[in-house]
Design a protein around this nucleic acid. Sequence first.
DNA 1: GACAAAATTGTAAGCGCTTACACTTTTGGC
DNA 2: GCCAAAAGTGTAAGCGCTTACAATTTTGTC
Lengths: 339, 339
Amino acid sequence: MVRTHRVTIQDVAVLSGLSICTVSRALRNLPNVSEKAQRQVAEAANKLGYKASAAASRLAGGSTGSVAIIAPTATAWFFAQAVEAAEEVFGDSGYDTVLVSLRNKTSVRKQVFGDLERLAQRVDGLLLLNVDLDPEEVEALEASGLPVASVGMRNVPWDNVGIDDEHAAWQATQHLLGLGHWDLAVLSSNEHSVATETPRFHGFRRALDEHHLTVHPDLVVAAGPSIDDGRRAMTELITRGARPTAVFAHCDEAAFGALMALREHGLSVPKNVSVIGIDDHPMSWFLGLSTVAQPVADQGAFAANLLCERLLNTDPPNPPSNHLLDTKLIERKTTRHKR
Amino acid sequence: MVRTHRVTIQDVAVLSGLSICTVSRALRNLPNVSEKAQRQVAEAANKLGYKASAAASRLAGGSTGSVAIIAPTATAWFFAQAVEAAEEVFGDSGYDTVLVSLRNKTSVRKQVFGDLERLAQRVDGLLLLNVDLDPEEVEALEASGLPVASVGMRNVPWDNVGIDDEHAAWQATQHLLGLGHWDLAVLSSNEHSVATETPRFHGFRRALDEHHLTVHPDLVVAAGPSIDDGRRAMTELITRGARPTAVFAHCDEAAFGALMALREHGLSVPKNVSVIGIDDHPMSWFLGLSTVAQPVADQGAFAANLLCERLLNTDPPNPPSNHLLDTKLIERKTTRHKR
DNA sequence: GACAAAATTGTAAGCGCTTACACTTTTGGC
DNA sequence: GCCAAAAGTGTAAGCGCTTACAATTTTGTC
């Protein structure tokens, strides 16, 4: 069966005996279409295997059938998981997924948020993963008119799904403190690239506060969500002469890196130093890494679903919702009571 | 500066004092445009900040400004790395990246390759990552007219970048054999979902052949590119009563899983069992995993560049090229001479 | 210089869809 | 039954671009 000519809405109109306009409305489930017409159109479209042209639809003011996922990086474990989970949801809802990795580069970031019109032209909605937005960017997003949903963000004027990052960090830190450690180092980030790092740092600080301890600036070091970054950060700490008895890493991958650096410098875990992360990466169990577990794919899928709902629901613009999923402290072998 | 109306090609035409048609040609660097016109158009477009509408362009028969990356999964380390590297190249060339994860599901796969027309409608080109295509799918791809490039595939009628998978597997296996092991297990795949697994299995077998050994069916077990799969596969092997003295895993993540399973069953590595993988994952160094290193991001970026070239170059359709990058055996602590 | 060929530019017809608006039919109340 | 309101349908004008093809200008040759 060779078809030389693309099946257009016109063909469906002819076959169904209705006008193009009615077909268009029927296909999009708009009101003012009789059940009979609806049925005829569905039948004709189905028989013809009609698929609307995204380009034409878009050009005429309709939807693009795509959504974009914006993430600080696409390689880190968390993001790869969340992206795939979201992509699945989008795919099942008929949307193509455009992946935009900011690659932790200011230039890319400026390019993306500086020209949201371009994106708005090409996608129907945006899913932001842990993007640490500044107020101007939030405003630009609002101005773009694009429906947005996010994972791991705070105080944003759209649907969000995440964990209580501050609490998760508090749990981890509290665990360390409970073991008698007070010289705590943090592998965090001052670059504001990953949104979850700020609340996690706050959670860390709050736990210290509660024990009447203060954050020692020399024990704070930046690390992105990667093994290499964690390793580099921990190495810097050690090289600098810092000798914390415990380390809180903002994610498991950074913690892995820390474990590496510690071992490279002859420090044994947990004998000399305790280490804890957040995530519960599949490697963590094997390495005995204590951590705070969070559901990752769930967050991506959940947020993607929220976005899809907004995209489909035309009528009642519900107020933005914020959903926090549970986290759980998992004690393993990298944390131990201070001797 | 509020702009109420989208800058169209019309605006550029007016400002440059030329016709829409000439502007369109100039913007796309088509022939038959005087240098003067070219300059005027560039200037006007620049001043106006003109960006062509992808939808309009596409509808009229032009390009979409997007490419799709198709991968068996998006979560495995290899794929996350390759995807991000490719996405960067595409982004720098002005293309949006549509991510399509097959999620190792036949249904998704059929859906994607069964309706390439849909994709052809929405993207200008395709980058396939280790997709183990059957002949019909290759044919469908050819029929779609979409420019294609790939990573890790064999005998395909388009540009490909990869490593010599058979050789890499041979290197790994040879290493094991050289250490005196002859009861070798393989964590491979019979599902034909990841393209590199077949040649790797062949490489494994060839090494055995050369030592006049044969592959023992009981020591072959399927495992996708994930820690969980590796763990499950190794557990199955052990539960089944198999007692190989060495294990070759088709990728490092599967090897990690194998290490876990071995430890869970009280088998120590490398004392009781040697383990080797392929990849050189960032964790491998830390775990002391012997492996065959391959450049991953390079492959993704390289293939993406090849695709971009095809997309841009209008004139000479060069014959498809195949590029093999080097691999290197890295001996670490999970492999040891058989006692 | 004249003239054909080559190079450049413009005209206008779509691409396939959405949507304002006009038109026709149905519905419901009295 | 009558009539206004409501519901359903159709007409036609774009959306912003590409591309035959026609029109114009430039180039090259003798």
